[in-house]
Amino acid sequence: MLKIEDLQVKLGEKEILKHIDLEINPGETHILFGPNGSGKTSLLMTIMGYPQYEVVSGKIMFKGEDITHMPIDERAKLGIGMSYQRPPTINGLKTRQMVELCAGGEINEAALARQVNFEEFLDRDVNAGFSGGEIKRSELLQLMAQKPDLMLFDEPESGVDMENITLVGNIIAELLEKHLHPSRGRSKMQAKADRTKMGLIITHTGFILDYVSADKGQVLYNGKLSCVSNPREILNCVGDTGYEECVRCISMNNLS
């Protein structure tokens, strides 16, 4: 379980996250909405442990451990992984080698890559000249090898062409064990209990909701998590009235 309590974060001199509370239980997926610059990526980077995001107060708990000041690699080892929106290029490091590093040992890169239609990129340097959509598939491939328990997705569908969007959506659903549906002899409750993977997904478009059932939607606005609601509802509301109006409206509903 991820539990964030009263988290305040500074980037340089600027306060970018204000009193964030967030709880993601095993098996749950949350969607994070918010306008550009509202702090969504910063929240993900803070959870991942990027040191330039300075935690001023509050704490982050994961699997019962206080990880607030834990280095990135230890968080990764504890089971946190991230799919980046704009990862850096690593010259001279082949995507194939990167996948192996993620797996922490030998792995069938080709078979894994086939699932995300990415075989022909295995011998190219990581992210070197990749298009937006190619980066997303490369990131997913790395997560497939890494198998984290909590996955942070930063706009996983942006830049992905129509042909690959279904693929990307289904892979994310699979990573988050959404296939563990109630089936014969297993109740809905049991299926949910089997599912342990957690997800936090940033999206602007909501396309991802067509593939991944999410438990909660949250809006981050001006560094504050302003409302919790059904993700579809938030998406519709934002589409109709914009973020500012949406935040005000849902906040009022939550108060009443």
Partner: peptide
């Protein structure tokens, strides 16, 4: 940024 990226993959 490159070091952090690889660290987030467990190195």
């Amino acid at each position: 940024e490159e070091i952090s990226y690889l660290m987030s993959r467990g190195l």
